[in-house]
Each structure stands twice: as structure tokens, then as C-alpha cells.
Design a protein around this nucleic acid. Structure first.
Ligand SMILES: [Mn+2]
Ligand SMILES: [Mn+2]
Ligand SMILES: [Zn+2]
Ligand SMILES: [Zn+2]
Lengths: 158, 158
DNA sequence: ACCAATAGTGAGACATTGTGTCAATACTGA
DNA sequence: TCAGTATTGACACAATGTCTCACTATTGGT
């Protein structure tokens, strides 16, 4: 087996609290609820999805979390590499929970099953690009799309 | 100079008409105006940008083109590789005019200057991913972000 | 424990972006 | 020229994202 596939180490809500603190962010109740809700997902989820999920469930005791708060918090979590911003096949933005570090994702176009991988083939390319264009290169986005084994049409084995 | 950078061959409106025909699309007046407007751009532009630009200028003679038509046409052009869908640093979708073929883009985060390149470092990676995950891999998206020479802060050469 | 400073919140108005409908229109090939 | 049909555009609507601002809650210092 090559080095491509990452077995993600679990990341906990308390770990994320620590990271928030270290970055100077306050530990607030909405942020904690957002983090916990995000951690329930092992596939990409959209901001609006979380908005819906966090809208007071049957339990009328929970207060609502404002849409703006959710968008803001997701951005913060992404900036700290707790989440990754990914692009879904259709072109829409979503987030996935991630262990920290540089990751890319292989996403099933059908069911959104996601496999993170760490090998990044960009590094050598970047050197060429810098030499050719004189750009300073700060970032890149790479997403790979396909069909997971479950979603592949059965081969017609006559 | 390495092979990374593409000097784009010009693509003309009439060439695009041919491509449309070959794909079974009709040559309509709105499509021609959309194509011509798109060709004026050498940087990424959004669908809404075109909507605005095509909204009858001072010249009251031109009729309006519906928003839906513009979105539809851009998708068609992208599906024929006349345009590429790209993701801007902020995460928003845009299109760039392209010579046909497999391209990626290096985009300036500040001024959106764009350099297309053809070298794609994905191929070997894809083999590993297939072996490791059993996914069928159909597509990928790669964008590189940075600062073009013009937008780089001057080095403080004391 | 208390307090002052201030980061953070949420409601909602609003802006932007994208989709769906459908009668009317304009291409195209025959 | 004409019938068949792909395409249009207006518009309503859905979805997504941004902004504001008075109010609240967290935090570090005392
Ligand atoms: Mn990478
Ligand atoms: Mn490629
Ligand atoms: Zn799948
Ligand atoms: Zn620039």
C-alpha cells in the first residue's frame, strides 16, 4: 500500500477547545455546540446543513444559534485547520472535519464518501511555476472526484 | 524555462460557433453575445459579472438577456472546454476563457491575474489513490494561488 | 469572587447567487 | 418555406452568504 491514504486520528471537542484558546479565541457555548455538531460528520457538510441541524430540535430548551455565528465559526475552525474547506463535485463549498496538517480529499460524486490523503504532488510543480512566472505562491486547492466502491455500477460479469 | 506555462493560443468567436454546432447546439443571438462578452476577459469573471455587463448598456436597442440564459450558456461553454470553471481564492466560482484541453490556473489573490498551465502532477497520484481506495476517479480540481509580480510588496533592500 | 474591557452573539434585513417554470420565440434541417 | 423543437426571458423563488448593532458572556486581572 502506498503512502497516499491517511487513517485519520480522532480529534476531540476538548482538543478543539484547546486550539481555540491557543489562538486567542474565547470558548463560548455556541462555538462548543457548533464543534460538537461538526464532529458528528464524517463526510463533507455545508454551512447551511449545520444551520438546519442546530436549529432548536424538538427540545425547545436550546436557544437558537444565529446563522452568522455558524458561518463565522466555521471559517475560524477552517483557518485553524480543524476543518478543511472543500469543493463538492457540483462546485459548491463544504467543510470536512480533519486532523490538522496538509490534506487533500478524494470525494465520491454520488454519496460524498471522503478519503483524506496527505501526499501532495504540488511541491515540484510549484518550483517550476515560480521560476516561470515570478509569482509568490501561497496556497493551492486540490480535490479529486470519483466513485467509491459502493457506488460503482456492478460490472456485468457474464 | 520549464514546460509549465502555456502561451494561450487565441480562440475566436467564430471558432466557438463551430464548436457549438459540432456539439449540436444552435447558434443563437444571445449565445453569440455571451461568447463575445466572455472573450473580452483575460481574467476570471463570474456569471453575475456577465449578467451586469450584458444588461442593456446606454444603447437601449439591445434587448436584455435573461439571467438563466447566461448561467446556462456558461455551463455549456464550460462543458465544451471553451471556458474553465475555477475557484477564486475567496472560494467563489468563476470562469476563464481557455484554449481547449486540460488546464489548471495560477491566480493572483490580489488582482486575479491568471496564468494557465498544462502540467498536471495528478496522474501518478491517481494511480496510488485507485490502488489504495478502489475508487473510480473521474475528475479533479487544482488551483494555485499567490501574488503576481506586480502585486508583490517591494522588498526592503536597505 | 468581582469587574471592566471587549470578544462574541443573534435577529433579521439585506445582498448575492443560482434554479425552475412556462408561454412565446427563433433556429435548423428537410 | 415550414414544422418541429431547442432556446429564450421574465419572474418567482430558493439557497447561500454578508452586515449591522444593541445586547451578552467570557476572560484576565485584581
Ligand atoms: Mn497540497
Ligand atoms: Mn489536472
Ligand atoms: Zn459513493
Ligand atoms: Zn496580481
Amino acid at each position: 500500500m502506498s503512502q497516499s491514504v491517511t487513517t485519520p486520528e480522532p480529534i476531540t471537542a476538548s482538543h478543539i477547545r484547546t486550539i481555540l484558546s491557543q489562538h486567542g479565541y474565547r470558548i463560548t457555548s455556541p462555538r462548543q455546540r457548533i464543534v460538537e455538531q461538526a464532529l458528528l460528520h464524517d463526510r463533507p457538510f455545508t454551512a447551511e446543513q449545520l444551520v438546519a441541524e442546530l436549529r432548536n430540535h424538538e427540545d425547545g430548551s436550546e436557544s437558537n444559534i444565529g446563522r452568522a455565528t455558524i458561518y463565522r465559526t466555521l471559517e475560524i475552525l477552517a483557518s485553524m485547520d480543524v476543518l478543511s474547506r472543500v469543493i463538492q463535485p457540483g462546485g459548491h463549498a463544504a467543510y470536512v472535519v480533519d486532523a490538522p496538517g496538509h490534506r487533500h480529499h478524494l470525494v465520491c460524486s454520488q454519496c460524498s464518501a471522503t478519503v483524506a490523503f496527505t501526499s501532495c504532488p504540488i511541491d515540484e510543480l510549484v518550483q517550476d511555476l515560480i521560476a516561470d512566472t515570478q509569482f509568490q505562491i501561497h496556497d493551492h486547492m486540490l480535490e479529486v472526484f470519483g466513485l467509491c466502491p459502493e457506488c460503482q455500477p456492478p460490472t456485468n460479469g457474464t
